[in-house]
Simulated scan of single mutants.
Amino acid sequence: MEFRDLKAQYEKYKPEIDSAIFNVISNANFIGGKEVNQLEEQLADFVGVNHCITCANGTEAMTLLMMAWDIKGGDAVYVPDFTFFSTGEVVSFRGATPVFVDVDRETFNIDPLKLEKAIIKTIEEGKLTPKVIIPVDLFGLPANFSQIEKIAEKYNLKILEDGAQGFGGNINGKRACSFGDAATTSFFPAKPLGCYGDGGAIFTNDDELAGLLKSLKIHGKGEDKYDNVRIGINSRLDTIQAAILKVKLEAFINHELEGVNRVYRLYNEKLSGLVEVPVIPEGYYSSFAQYTIKLKNKEQRDGLQAHLKEQGIPSMIYYVKPMHRQGAFSYLPFEDKDFEVTNELCDIVLSLPMHPYITDEEIQAVCEAIEGYLK
């Protein structure tokens, strides 16, 4: 059994993927080929924004926005405490200060009430200038943007939606990566829409910002690549990855999104009452980067994971350590009591195999193994 079965996906779309790769190799347009522009247009159309700018990976997508917005030392950027390291890393990389915020226990996403308290605290302390909020669409579920956008407007802050795990989700039909001032996603292979290497993208309706990002991602180029008008970086999505993503995007839209939501419903039906199952708020739609359950305590969680491994069932813990306890952020002051939910989640969460190609028999085997351990 695979945790996320990329092999099954490839076998289903092998002729299309092989042909797409072969065409790029035959044309020898490995950087900036027509497939990149075509993919950007298709992604922008799917998300419902004016611009999609592809780049090398999801981390650099966020870094490019930090550069474009001139985030620097003395600036405060608000980041959920329960997320992958890169969301805070891009802030520190620019010399700014990540301010970690506890999350909502039910959705795993940044808690708007605690977010506003953190902003007020920063203002009252007077040491940093609040600039940006980076909500993360964790495990595929979009963050609470209706509340976050009100807070951002109240304190004149920008919003960068980190949709690395959320691509394909929506809130009342408005798709992930269309919220805030700009959004980013990752095409890491295990993401909801993944390529066969690294890749990322930025989404925005801001024409001026889009133009600046296109310059920054190619060494700060002006009219051409030898006319450099600013300091930038080298962050491009290569043509082979774009060609692969074009094939996979069609599959993603046609059946994979509904496929993972079908798996979610089956898991919930079989596991409700045994463990705490994921809850999708009314009006929300998740792309289920992960299907994450909660156990009673760390001992039960770790015991279940060991039991599943003995049965040949893979599982993962996202995340074993909160952001505020990462060694790289040890210089930041914090009070552990401000992160009660995150601290608990790190001890009790467990993610189960989740992908559109998992069979009903495999789902049944996972659920029977969990029931057998807990009862």
Rank of each mutant, 00 (worst) to 15 (best):
L193F: 05
H219M: 15
G48L: 08
T122C: 09
C346Q: 08
V79T: 03
F179P: 00
Q305H: 09
V320R: 13
G232E: 05
T185N: 07
P15Q: 05
P353T: 00
N254Q: 11
N144A: 08
R230W: 14
D360Y: 12
A76E: 01
K12N: 10
P356H: 02
E40M: 09
S287L: 01
N29Q: 15
N29Y: 15
K248S: 04
K14C: 03
S215R: 12
D338L: 08
A190Q: 11
Q305P: 06
E282D: 11
V277E: 03
P142C: 07
G327N: 08
N172H: 12
M67Q: 05
A289K: 04
V36S: 00
L160M: 11
V229F: 13
V279G: 09
H219V: 12
A243N: 10
L6E: 03
I148W: 00
N27A: 15
I17C: 00
G327F: 10
Q311G: 05
L249F: 06
F188H: 06
N234Q: 14
I244K: 06
N57S: 04
S351G: 02
D75V: 03
I370T: 00
E269L: 11
K121R: 13
G180C: 01
G312K: 04
E344A: 11
Q42F: 10
V229Q: 13
E223S: 14
D137W: 03
L64T: 00
L304T: 01
G211V: 14
T342D: 06
Y319K: 13
A210H: 04
K158H: 10
S19C: 13
E149P: 01
Q165I: 06
L245H: 04
K214D: 10
K34S: 14
G232F: 02
K294I: 05
K131W: 03
G126N: 11
E125H: 12
L157G: 02
N254P: 09
I363K: 05
G194C: 07
C367N: 04
K225L: 15
A56D: 09
L65P: 00
F84D: 15
T292C: 09
R236Q: 14
F93I: 15
I159D: 02
L332A: 01
P314E: 03
D81S: 13
L332F: 01
L374E: 12
G166I: 06
K298Q: 14
P135I: 02
R236F: 12
R301Y: 02
F93Y: 15
C367W: 02
Q290T: 07
G168T: 01
D227R: 15
A190C: 13
T59N: 13
L212F: 14
I31P: 15
F203E: 08
E41C: 14
L374G: 05
L65H: 06
M354D: 05
E258I: 12
E125C: 11
D302S: 06
P192M: 09
G166W: 08
K294M: 09
A251D: 08
K158R: 13
L295V: 04
K121T: 09
L43S: 03
Q326S: 15
S330G: 09
K7I: 05
A152R: 01
K14T: 04
P130C: 01
K309T: 08
E35M: 07
L43E: 02
D224P: 12
L249R: 07
K127W: 12
R262W: 10
K225D: 15
H307I: 07
P112N: 05
